[in-house]
Nucleic acid binder design. Structure first.
Length: 479
RNA sequence: GCCCCCAUCGUCUAGUGGCCCAGGACGCGGCCCUCUCAAGGCCAAAACCGGGAUUCGAAUUCCCGUGGGGGCACCA
């Protein structure tokens, strides 16, 4: 039974990197009919961020990554919140001490003053402090005195530690260069480095999915697994997601969160789709996938090694693809909340508008600007009436408006078809290209060089009265 | 500074020794379609980091450079 987990810490929101890690974990589990679990890694109370937990739940729902086990869904491996598992970590840490694989350390916490650039480059020396030499009796005595202590992992002085990563292969480190990291802090909380090993084992996680930034701490985890005599899960270190210029994508450098991207007008399904292809490919030329399809075709073996650059442009295109694949009804429902109130107040046929703009919408946020002219005709210069391609000039436009306004005044019923037939007939009878006739109508209706929908569609949308009003106004500009 | 990872069009990528004078996608340019703009269709430009080695043959294997990235906390 495959079991994977998404293990965020409640210190921030879900940005694209986290999302992809969660997605891959989800896909690995679901592709193999396994279980996907959510575990909260809140082992650093100082870094807790208000609202982060809610954001995590909300983001998972948005993305459609439903977990089988989690804080609110017990699957028999709980609790799924690390701060509620403190006694467990303590017990295992002490077991390690008893085995000689860890030791009590009474050294004072070093102040990690994050000096700026000025700090000269002092070569890093792995942690090998004197406490590792303390005899168990001495340690116990000092403990009994109430001296504060942490538990550190004991690392062999010699030898190499090699682990196997499923996509990177074997990776080796010299033990002497590994630091004897803290397992249990003086406040009784475990460090992430310890808790993740304990929990992954206890929760029977089969595949650990995480970013490549963990590559260099993984040998220490391997040593921990060995110390306990446990089998290591399959390790899957995903390539980093970077900015297009190759620099690391971090929250500092504007990595958007899932929720922010949704606010920007992206569909969660498109974001998930796009992110799935950052460091993975299906081996076919298909690029547009639903979550369900991804579950079908996902294969860990096809995850890449090299970092992937996040491209807003391609995401935008993909979002457009997803929008176009929506049923008109589904699109309309989504579009509704993006229509400005000014438009809703007027009696526009919003469904008709939706049908017109669906194919032209790349982001839902485009909607506002695309249809603003409907509620209010923008200011425009007569020069908009001039267009080479449709052979429109100021004179032709004036002439056409003059002659078509009466025709349209008399037109009944006011439908797209009727308006189109009327104008096309006019064009043929007067020796105009259809485009030449349509251009001034469309222009007068919108004041714009480009609009979602053609002349007759706009006229239909605006209604007879408003259309004629705008047509006359356009004519006035030309006289 | 030390350790580790990575390296194909601007970007995402295919490619696991001959099918590759390197394929697809985004973006860019052009054409077609067309009641404007989109969408759609067609076409074009655009890459194997460098040097050695192995081999009849290397984008694909191995070394060495170079470049980029990551890590080095009582953070995750």
């Amino acid at each position: 039974m495959i079991r994977t987990r998404y293990a965020p810490s409640p210190t921030g929101f879900m940005h694209v990197g986290n999302l992809r890690t969660a997605l891959y974990a989800y896909l690995i589990a679901k592709h193999g009919n396994g279980k996907f679990l959510l575990r909260i890694e809140d082992t650093d109370s100082k870094r807790y961020v208000e609202g982060a937990l809610e954001a995590i739940y909300h983001s998972l729902i948005l993305a459609g990554l439903t977990y089988d086990e989690g804080p609110d869904k017990d699957g028999g491996f709980g609790p799924y919140v690390q701060s509620q598992r403190l006694p467990i970590y303590k017990r295992y840490a002490e077991e390690l001490v008893a085995k000689g694989e860890a030791y009590y350390c009474f050294c004072q916490k070093e102040d990690h003053v994050n000096e700026e650039e000025e700090e000269e480059e002092v070569p890093f020396v792995p942690e090998r402090n004197i406490c590792r030499l303390l005899s168990p009796q001495e340690a116990q005595a000092r403990l009994a005195d109430g001296e504060p202590a942490v538990i550190r992992q004991r690392i062999p002085d010699t030898g190499m530690t090699t682990y196997h990563d499923h996509i990177l292969g074997d990776i080796s480190f010299e033990n002497a260069l590994l630091d004897e990291q803290v397992l249990l802090k003086s406040d009784g909380y475990p460090t992430y480095n310890f808790a993740n090993v304990i929990d992954d084992h206890l929760m029977q996680i089969t595949h650990v999915v995480r970013g490549q930034e963990y590559i260099s701490s993984t040998p220490k985890y391997s040593l921990l697994y060995q110390a306990f005599g446990w089998q290591s899960p399959v390790l899957v270190h995903c390539p980093l997601i970077v900015n297009e210029d190759g620099t690391k994508m971090s929250k500092r450098k504007g990595a958007p969160t899932l929720e922010q991207m949704v606010e920007m007008g992206f569909l969660p399904a498109a974001i998930v789709n796009y992110v799935s292809l950052l460091g993975w490919n299906p081996g076919t030329t298909q690029e547009i996938f639903t979550l369900e399809e991804l579950v079908q075709v996902f294969n860990v073996d096809r995850i890449n090694k090299s970092p992937a650059g996040f491209s807003m442009e391609k995401l935008t295109w993909m979002n457009g693809e997803h929008i176009r694949r929506l049923s008109p009804e589904a699109f309309h429902e989504l579009a509704l909340s993006w229509y400005p109130d000014s438009l809703k107040k007027l009696k526009f046929d919003l469904e008709k508008i939706s049908r017109l703009i669906q194919v032209r919408t790349e982001r839902l946020s485009d909607i506002r600007t695309m249809i603003g002219f409907l509620a209010e005709l923008p200011e425009y210069e007569p020069s908009v009436f001039v267009n080479d391609k449709s052979k429109s000039t100021l004179e032709s436009s004036r002439k056409i408006l003059q002659k078509t306004i009466p025709l349209l005044e008399a037109l009944e019923p006011w439908t797209n078809e009727a308006i189109f037939t009327c104008l096309k007939t006019f064009a043929i009878e007067n020796g105009f290209k259809v485009g030449t006739v349509m251009w001034p109508i469309r222009t007068a209706c919108s004041g714009l060089e480009a609009t979602p929908g053609g002349a007759t569609e706009l006229a239909d949308l605006l209604g007879k009265e408003e259309t004629l009003k705008r047509l006359r106004l356009g004519l006035a500009k030309l006289q």
